[in-house]
Amino acid sequence: MSYLTIKDLTVRLKNGVPLLRKVSLEVKSGEVRALVGESGAGKSMIGKAVLGILPRAAKLTGGEILLDGEDLLTLPPKARRAKIGAKVALIPQDPLTALNPSRRVGPQITDRLVDILGWKRKQAEDRAAELLDEVHIQSPERVMRSYPHELSGGMRQRILIASAFAAEPKLIIADEPTTALDVTVQKQILKLIREMQERHDTALLFVTHDLGVVSKISQSLTVLYAGMVIEETDVRTFFAEPGHAYSRALLAATPKYTDPDGSLMPVPDSIISQVEQQVAAFDAQLKR
């Protein structure tokens, strides 16, 4: 059964320019869904809309976001915040800026448990230590007393992952969680997210521009172009026989691990204009 259901989600800039064009997608409980697209395709915007952190310049103008069957957009702001805080968590893109530099690491993991969910401090601290152990951090007590600047980027991303899983959320949104890390660390972090997701049986919406990552982590994927869903399928089908010409072109433009020396094809102009026509037709249909 699907945990997150997005129906016809439309987000526009204040001046009316659409960022998301009636996006619909589902993430089932315990499922990993990748959200793929070029920069600016709106993949992060979907995650932000779900988490209620759209930038001030953007405005949600239509659609539904159902979390466990309940429409988040009809809830009053306070109730929505509390529900998101309890059920959804974010693994951010850049671990170097996502931790507050003037606070110790420990309270940044436990704060949601204590302040929002009403845990006892001691209980939350034990839980944080346990989680740090799960993300393979040695001597959790010492790390919890540290400030972010005393820790490496990989270490900080592990802490952010531990923090995301702290409240046992039903859905985690990972917004390009490996993009800011160097390649060797990327692999470990990817493996770790996978491992944690399986252990906690959490649904995961994995936002990425890297098709190589998709095959390693997710079962299903949604391809976006210009804020429009181009293709929605399971990973096996996608890599075997992508349904949309744009998806095929995207795949041809991605280096393959099986054939690292193979030649790469940039996405041809003809295909770009084909999708652009599709977008224009869609916009025209919306106006009517």
Partner: peptide, 11 residues
């Protein structure tokens, strides 16, 4: 970013 993250926590 840490402000955005705090928002998602429910503050």
């Amino acid at each position: 970013d840490y402000i955005t993250l705090a928002r998602t926590k429910g503050y």
